[in-house]
Design a binder for these strands. Structure first.
Length: 333
DNA sequence: AAATGTGTCAACCGCGAGAGT
DNA sequence: TACTCTCGCGGTTGACACATT
């Protein structure tokens, strides 16, 4: 028996429209993420909230819904502008883990595996090749090269595994009713580190890591809408209604700004208010806003494997990954 | 101004893993 | 144990934007 097609024929493909995004986010708000198989079926009932003729609702395959959510709509996603730190981490981790983008993305909680993969394929790989070709180690070159230079791959992997193991341990401790603070982990890690690396002081720092603050999905959608408006100077009636809808929903002070005075727009406006309930589209930008509405935490319990739940370990791992080879040379197992 | 080349990135496809029956 | 279903991952594609000729 051959493998059954993952999706029915006739499902929509191609770029997602803001309407579809709204339907999806609305659905996930109500039902939570997961059970993707049911999403296309269950959102069909939501289609009629849009009265434009060109809207067909969410006739997407489950995979597509999941991908859209995890890569673009999920709260807390940072897009573009990779920092130098992130670059270094990616290079480090790629050298260690290979093209295991999901694993790499676990260390960059604000980035998606797809984003990292694209960044690597389109930019970092070329950059490293150039550096290698020129024989220079440059500012980034040493990061990847140092893996083989100053420490064997096996040593790195063991070190990574040790840290991951300890991070897991700390997490389970933190989750257990018996209260144990992450300082247990820290102490353990410090003692571990002090045995093999007396000069690397970063592990002795007890400075708390700022927790990752998640932006709301509205952030992402508003950004999408902005881009959409920008890219399509001539707006269709649908676009206008959606934009008005978004604005109406975003601006809680005024809900009559829609082009349609019908109950549909009121309903949609309410949907938006319920969904996003925050001030205006203007407040949305690509940066994280730490002062989000309570809805901003709506999806916090859902994300990709969240190692940020254990802030200290993540911070330490991050520091470790970004640590210069100077420190690495002194480490031994 | 048009044609062509190049880069970027959103989305798709196929496969494997794991859970459920 | 065998099978089905669903999810998640990594590789790849294709559309679009921008640069160059």
């Amino acid at each position: 028996m051959g493998r059954p097609p993952c999706c029915d024929k006739g499902v929509k493909k191609g770029p997602w429209t803001p309407e579809e995004d709204i339907i999806l986010v609305s659905y996930i708000q109500d039902h939570g993420p997961g059970n993707w198989k049911a999403v296309p079926t269950n959102t069909a009932s939501q289609r009629n909230i849009f009265d434009s003729g060109d809207l067909n609702g969410l006739s997407r395959c489950s995979k597509s819904c999941r991908l859209r959510w995890t890569n673009y709509l999920r709260p807390g996603i940072k897009r573009g502008n990779f920092t130098e730190q992130e670059e270094k981490m990616i290079i480090h981790l790629q050298a260690l883990l290979g093209n295991r983008w999901a694993a790499i993305a676990a260390y960059l909680p604000q980035r998606t595996d797809n984003d990292i993969k694209n960044y690597w394929n389109t930019y970092l790989k070329k950059k490293l090749n150039k550096l290698e070709a020129s024989g220079s180690e440059g500012s980034l070159g040493h990061v990847g090269v140092s893996v083989s230079q100053s420490m064997s791959r096996g040593q790195w992997e063991r070190r990574l595994q040790t840290d991951i193991h300890m991070a897991k341990k700390a997490l389970s401790e933190a989750l257990s009713p018996k209260k144990t603070s992450s300082s247990t982990f820290l102490a353990e890690l410090n003692s571990n580190r002090s045995n093999d690396n007396s000069t690397c002081s970063i592990y002795n720092s007890t400075k708390p890591t700022p927790s990752i603050s998640y932006a709301s999905s509205a952030d992402n959608i508003a950004r999408l809408l902005k881009g959409w408006m920008k890219s399509t100077p001539k707006r269709s009636a649908t676009q206008n209604s959606i934009i008005n809808l978004a604005c109406a929903g975003a601006d809680t002070a005024s809900s009559e700004g829609t082009t349609k005075g019908s109950s549909t727009s009121v309903e949609l406006s309410e949907t938006f208010q319920t969904l996003f309930g925050y001030e205006s589209l203007e407040s949305s930008n690509s940066e994280f806003s730490p002062s989000l509405s309570p809805e901003g935490t709506l999806f916090q319990d859902e994300s990709k494997p969240d190692i940020t739940g254990i802030d200290v370990p993540f911070s330490l791992l991050e520091k470790w990954l970004l640590d210069d080879s100077g420190c690495q040379e002194k480490l031994s197992f």
